[in-house]
Design a protein around this nucleic acid. Structure first.
Length: 282
DNA sequence: CTGCAGGCCGGCG
DNA sequence: CGCCGGCCTGCA
């Protein structure tokens, strides 16, 4: 079937971008083809070399939505050239994972998803997000299959602890319930976050129950376009120790080192390191 | 059966 | 204020 949208892309790898762990809802249906949900629509996207083909349940503003989500308006050719000059470790890592992009994901969904991610594994995180969507999100039929949007705050505001436990969120259920109640009572919170400077936004996010330094950084990077943050999880900690410290180092020290060394592009470097350590390339 | 998975909370020194 | 034990749950 004819795509709803075709775009030429440079320095873009769909597979790496969707499988480097920054998002939880995309499924690979066949080779180079992925189906997922972006805000209010189901998207099927396929890469053929320097071209992407897109089909969607909703074609209004499709190009704008896709470009925003996959960060297609940014020049990653220059970006990768620039960060390759930082040192041999980054340069080497880029060889295996050129074309990873930092997604711009919907804020509310990203906050809830990353609260769920704490001390959890990707498979179970994905299942929880999907179950929450099925229970409370709007159903969309696309190509004869049923999909569910991630619920809006209004749709999910009456979710119970039992529902959250049924969705496999475990001890994080009370965090999620607490955060949803907080957003209901403070409807300016999410709007304000977007216009705050990064340090203030980070502090603000960390006042939320279930949001510590790592989760806050993921929200800042994967939803709020703060490319200078460097989330340190166990994998990144491991590879940073191996590449730069040679022994056990605190997360705080690693963060400060990365901020210093990688500067405003720390976030994309974190994604390349994460991808390659998980793939066993470095 | 233990250990562990993209950490965070809460209580303690 | 930094440290550290405990934690839902499913899978190896």
């Amino acid at each position: 079937m004819k795509p709803d949208l075709e775009l030429n892309v440079e320095c873009f790898n769909l597979k790496y971008t969707l499988e480097c762990g920054q998002c939880f809802r995309w499924e690979c249906t066949e080779n180079n083809t992925y189906v997922g949900v972006i805000e209010d629509r189901v998207i099927k996207i396929k890469q053929e070399e320097n071209k992407i083909l897109v089909w969607s349940s909703l074609v209004d503003n499709l190009e704008e939505v896709v470009c925003e989500y996959f960060d297609l308006n940014k020049d990653y050719v220059s970006l990768e050239e620039e960060i390759a000059k930082i040192d041999k470790n980054v340069e080497e890592s880029l060889k295996y994972s050129s074309g990873i992009r930092i997604l711009n994901q919907p804020l509310f969904e990203t906050i809830i998803s990353y609260i769920i991610s704490a001390n959890n594994n990707i498979k179970r995180i994905s299942r929880s997000v999907k179950d929450i969507s099925r229970k409370y999100g709007k159903k969309v039929v696309f190509e004869n299959n049923e999909y569910y949007l991630f619920p809006t705050l209004e749709e999910i505001k009456n979710i119970t602890m039992d529902d959250l436990l049924e969705c496999g969120t475990g001890f994080r259920a009370r965090y999620i319930k607490n955060v949803i109640n907080y957003f209901i009572d403070n409807n300016e919170f999410l709007i304000n976050l977007k216009v705050m400077d990064t340090d203030s936004a980070r502090k603000s996010l960390m006042t939320l129950m279930g949001v510590g330094p790592k989760v806050a950084d993921c929200i800042l990077l994967f939803s709020l376009k703060r490319g200078e943050v460097f989330p340190v999880d166990v994998w990144v900690k491991r590879i940073m120790e191996k590449l730069y410290f040679k022994d056990n180092t605190s997360i705080k020290e690693i963060s400060e080192f990365a901020k210093d060394k990688f500067g405003k592009h720390a976030g994309i470097i974190q994604q390349h390191l994460f991808h390659n350590v998980r793939e066993g390339n470095i």
